[in-house]
Nucleic acid binder design. Structure first.
Lengths: 195, 195
DNA sequence: TTGACAATTAAACGATGTTTAATAAAACTA
DNA sequence: TAGTTTTATTAAACATCGTTTAATTGTCAA
């Protein structure tokens, strides 16, 4: 068999990412496989390696899409006039809302690991930094110096993320009367209260 | 070939777990395989299924060993006379120390996921709860009601864990002048300050 | 001593990610 | 237009994986 040229490489790339999004959404990262992807877009496995280095590279791109989507959802909740404390509360709540609405795709971002020793490429790391920046933007408005603002953003957001991780992986074991949202609110307000 | 009866089932079980510990330590969870394990203990793959349901079950047991070890290390740092704030600081620091000292085994606990819909057996969940209990024991000593103590333990520990997760997976991107330890200290002291 | 039982193995199965060689269509050249 | 080069695409192969199966053989009880 041979060249069809029905789609450009860019088209194939986005077809694959679309299929990956759907597959992860429905079956989780573990449900993703090269053959399933190829099948869904009407090509064979080999073609995937024309547009991606390997499956890890493919997954990184799929996860980047998720991070972009999350970033965008966080961004639109930031309202100019609100004070930083309130804004940080909203950001935190929006974060767990996103995770709860897209459990498998959110999970995939943190479940996926590169082989020992390898670290994520810069274009991926930037997606993560982008989100921290959104938080830092708010901590910077508090009455603290630059270094403290950087620290607070990292500490606070990691904290919110930690709650999210344990909750999503069923390791939080909350009593029925306590909701995750309250936990997050509690963490943020207590942390900010002392600043 | 056939029965050798050199080792009891219990002996084989602990030989496997010992091999698993070493393999995860050196190659990470991804480096673990049934054949490697069998090879290391001088048996063939089939024998693993005599003592474990499947690889997931085996990994859960290996991770339980890690959680037990972590619990024990946390426990010995608790000194009777210290105030709860100081004790919580020490617990938090001990936690990231453990993670940094045993990166691959610590990682394995949170990297491993059961197939969609399945959740960890009770004996495993208890290991997690045991650690939360250690924290709750301290938050209970603060001047707050029972419900608040439960919440604080969860929120605080999840927060510490979140910092640990992002740091260990290279997603924290800290500037050079900020250490993880300071981040943790910052989170704990700020959170507790307002109570 | 025979027969039932159970420990252990080798081999097979289906699935995985990745690489390879072959093929044929498109693009370029004369 | 004819011939040649390039390249998109595929089928097939490879090594590895978790898991199951059947066969084998040591052990123990009767």
């Amino acid at each position: 068999m041979a060249r069809r040229s029905e789609h450009s490489k860019e088209e194939i790339k986005s077809m694959v990412l679309g299929a990956a999004k759907g597959l992860i959404e429905e079956e989780g990262l573990a449900g993703l496989s090269a053959r399933k992807l190829a099948n869904q877009i009407g090509y064979t496995v080999g073609s995937l390696y024309m547009v991606f280095e390997n499956l890890d590279d493919l997954i990184l791109h799929a996860n980047a899409v998720t991070l972009d989507e999350l970033y965008q959802q966080l961004q639109v909740t930031v309202v100019e006039g609100d004070n930083p404390q309130a804004t940080l509360q909203i950001l935190a709540q929006t974060y767990i809302e996103y995770a709860m609405a897209n459990p498998n795709r959110w999970n995939a971002v943190f479940e996926h690991h590169l082989p020992e020793g390898q670290q994520a490429p810069e274009w991926f790391q930037q997606r993560v930094d982008q989100i921290f920046a959104l938080v830092e933007q708010q901590t910077s408005r508090l009455n603290i110096d630059r270094k403290k603002a950087v620290m607070s953003a990292r500490a606070l957001w990691s904290g919110v993320h930690g709650i999210c991780v344990l909750y999503m992986t069923n390791k939080l074991h909350l009593p029925d009367e306590i909701q995750v949202q309250s936990l997050v609110e509690d963490l943020v307000s207590n942390y900010l209260g002392k600043l």
